[in-house]
Write a protein that binds this DNA or RNA. Structure first.
Lengths: 227, 227
DNA sequence: CACATAGTTCGGCGAGGGCCGAAGTGTTTC
DNA sequence: GAAACACTTCGGCCCTCGCCGAACTATGTG
C-alpha cells in the first residue's frame, strides 16, 4: 500500500467514522459500525474489507460475526496525527465521550453477554467457585448446573448448536470473560431481574443497587461493591 | 478541515508527489512541481490551491512565480507517518536521492541566479566588499558597478523593469542570497565561463576547478576552497 | 426442517474529481 | 508596445467510487 492508498482509505467519511470509532481500542462488529456510521450493511462490509486489506484493521471471525479492530498502535497514532489538523472537538463532546467510554469499561454487553470489568469479575468468580470448567473445551460443572438452576435459568442440554460456555476476549480488560449460551442466559436474567440496565442507546450498562447485592451474594464475593 | 478532507488531499497521486517533493524543505515553483509530477500547469495550479487552502502548504508569490513549501514540521511528520505504512523505498533510490539533495544544498540555481551554500557565500562576500548595498531598497555601489564591469558584465541601468539586486530567501541555508538582475548576470557569466556546470537535469551545480579559483579570486576569499 | 440474523456479492445509479486544452491575467524582457 | 513566460480560470470529458437494494451464503435458533 502506497501513501496515496493509505490516505485514500481515510479520505472517506464512512471509513473515517469506522476508524475513529475503533480508536477506543475495542472490537466492533460490522453491523455495529454500519449503524454507527448510518450506512447499509453491504456498504459497511465493503469498507471493512478495504480497510483490512490496507492493513489498517485486523479482523476476527467469531461465529456469524465479524469483529474488527485497529491493526495496532501505529494506526492509532496516524489517526491522532491526522485529527490534530482539524480544529479540536469542543470540550462538551470530549467530556461526554470520555464519560461514555469509562461507563462501557465498567460494564457493557458484548453481543449477548456481559463484558467490561463486570464481565471479567463475574467470570473469575464462577471459575473460582468451580461452576464452569476451564479446560480443553469449556463446559459447565455439575455444581454449575445446579447454580444456574437455582438462579432459575435452564441451560440447554449441550447440543451441537451453540457452545454452552465460550471464553470471549474482553477488549478493554484484555482478558477473557464468559460467553456462549451460559453467558447469554446470565445476561438475559440480569436484564429481566433489573440487576443491570442500559445507559442510553449504547452498549454501556448501569448496575442497579439490587443488582450489586445479587451479584455479590450469588458469586460469594466478599467485597463492598462489585465494581 | 476535517480529518477526511486532510486525508483526501493526500489521497491523490499528483498531490502526494508534490508533498513528497517538498519534503526536502525547499520551496518549489508551480511549474517545477508540474514537470516533476508529469501533469499540466493548469492541473498543478488547482492542486496547489487546494493544498494551500487545506493548510498543508504555504506559498510566497515572487514576481511571476508561485513558490510553495510545506506549511511546517507537523506536515512533514504527517507525511513521514503515512509513508511509514508503505514498504520503504529500496536503498539505491534513497541513496541517489540523498546524493542529489546534498549536491543541491552545496550549489544550485534558484530560478536564474546562484543559490545553496555557493549562493550565500557569494552574496556575503559581495556585501563584505561593499559591492552591493543592503539598505532600504537594494542597489549596487559605485565599486560594485566597476567590479561587474571588470567581470565583463554590463548591468542594465536601473530601469523600472527588474530590480538590479534583490535579496532572495535561500530555502536550504535559511538566509538571503543575491537575486535580481545582478544575480542573474553573475549566474549567466558563471555558466558561460564554465565556472559551474549542471549535474544531470536538476537544479544542482558542480563547481569546476577553474570556477573555484575564479570565485575565490574575484571575491578576495582567503579560503582553500569555496565550498 | 423452517426461520431469523450477520454478513457478502453483484448490478446499477449518481456525484465527485482529476485531467487537459484554450483562453485570460499578470510579470518580465526586448 | 510586442513578445515571452508563469500561472490561473473555465468548460468539458471520462473514470472512479460510494451508495443502495436484491439476491445469496453462513451461522445460530426452535
Amino acid at each position: 500500500m502506497s501513501l496515496v492508498q493509505i490516505a485514500g482509505l481515510l479520505a472517506d467519511q464512512t471509513r473515517a467514522a469506522f476508524c475513529l470509532a475503533l480508536l477506543d481500542g475495542r472490537a466492533w462488529t460490522a453491523g455495529e459500525l454500519a449503524r454507527h456510521a448510518g450506512v447499509s450493511q453491504s456498504t459497511a462490509s465493503e469498507h471493512l474489507s478495504r480497510l483490512t486489506a490496507g492493513g489498517l484493521l485486523t479482523e476476527v471471525r467469531q461465529g456469524r460475526h465479524r469483529y474488527v479492530r485497529l491493526a495496532g498502535p501505529a494506526v492509532a497514532d496516524l489517526l491522532e496525527d491526522l485529527a490534530s489538523f482539524s480544529p479540536s472537538t469542543p470540550s462538551p463532546q470530549t467530556l461526554r465521550e470520555s464519560t461514555r467510554m469509562s461507563a462501557e469499561a465498567r460494564a457493557r454487553t458484548c453481543y449477548d453477554h456481559l463484558a467490561g470489568h463486570l464481565g471479567v469479575v463475574v467470570s473469575d468468580a464462577l471459575l473460582n467457585l468451580g461452576l464452569v470448567v476451564d479446560r480443553n473445551g469449556l463446559s459447565v460443572s455439575e455444581r454449575g448446573l445446579e447454580w444456574f438452576a437455582d438462579l432459575g435459568v435452564s441451560l440447554p442440554a449441550r447440543r451441537r448448536s451453540r457452545p454452552v460456555v465460550r471464553s470471549c476476549l474482553d477488549w478493554t480488560e484484555r482478558r477473557t470473560h464468559l460467553g456462549g449460551a451460559a453467558g447469554a442466559a446470565l445476561c438475559r436474567t440480569a436484564f429481566e431481574r433489573q440487576w443491570v440496565e442500559r445507559i442510553g442507546s449504547g452498549r454501556a450498562l448501569r448496575i442497579t443497587p439490587s443488582g450489586d447485592r445479587a451479584f455479590r451474594e450469588l458469586l460469594a464475593l466478599d467485597i463492598h461493591s462489585i465494581i
